[in-house]
Computed example of a mutant assay.
Amino acid sequence: MEYIDIMKRTLALLSLPMLCGWMAAGHAATQPQPLPTERVGVNGKELAALKLPTDFNVSKGRALRMREVTIAPGGILPMHSHADRPSVSYVLKGTLTEYLEGEAEGKQIVAGQSYATQGAGMHALQNKGDVPAVFLEVDLP
């Protein structure tokens, strides 16, 4: 045998144990791991909730949506109601002033706070701050 053939065979024989070890360590085709069935390190807390009326009609082809709403400094979301469109919201950034129909003073809602709106009562939101106010709203449009 030639010297090169001997070297190729020697290299192949020496590589075999490494290849077997690599495959045994899980680098070859392995079975998928089962998905976890227990919660670990998860904490959820309710921030806002609305009780839906017993006659609430969800069969109108609606979709539950979540949207990010930004109100620029000095911006106003004018008076409107959520009579047939309940919503819960969470302020991510900035400060909102909420005005409720029939109330003289507005209520401040700051980043990290949530609020819920439903029913025929009107409300408006204003950003009196110097930075955009950003909130997440979940509702049924």
Rank of each mutant, 00 (worst) to 15 (best):
I6C: 10
E137L: 04
L125H: 06
K128N: 00
A28T: 13
L64T: 08
D84C: 05
E101N: 03
D55F: 05
V42D: 03
R65Y: 14
T10A: 07
V88F: 02
A24E: 10
T70E: 15
D55N: 05
P78R: 13
T117K: 06
Y99V: 06
D84R: 10
T70Y: 00
G61Q: 11
N43H: 10
E98D: 00
L96T: 14
K45E: 13
E68L: 13
E2I: 03
Y99A: 07
Y90H: 04
L64H: 09
Q108F: 06
L92A: 09
E46L: 14
E68Y: 03
C20W: 07
T10G: 05
T95P: 07
L35E: 04
E38M: 11
T97F: 00
Q108A: 07
G94E: 06
T95H: 06
N57T: 09
G75S: 09
P53L: 12
Q113W: 00
T95C: 02
W22E: 08
P32G: 00
G74V: 13
M23G: 15
T95K: 15
A72R: 06
P141N: 08
G129P: 01
C20Q: 13
V91Q: 13
T97R: 05
L47S: 02
P78Q: 06
E2Y: 01
Y3V: 08
S89M: 14
V91C: 02
T30M: 10
R9T: 08
M18L: 12
L13I: 14
M7R: 02
A104F: 03
E68S: 11
A120D: 06
N57Y: 00
A133R: 12
I109F: 02
H80F: 07
Y90F: 15
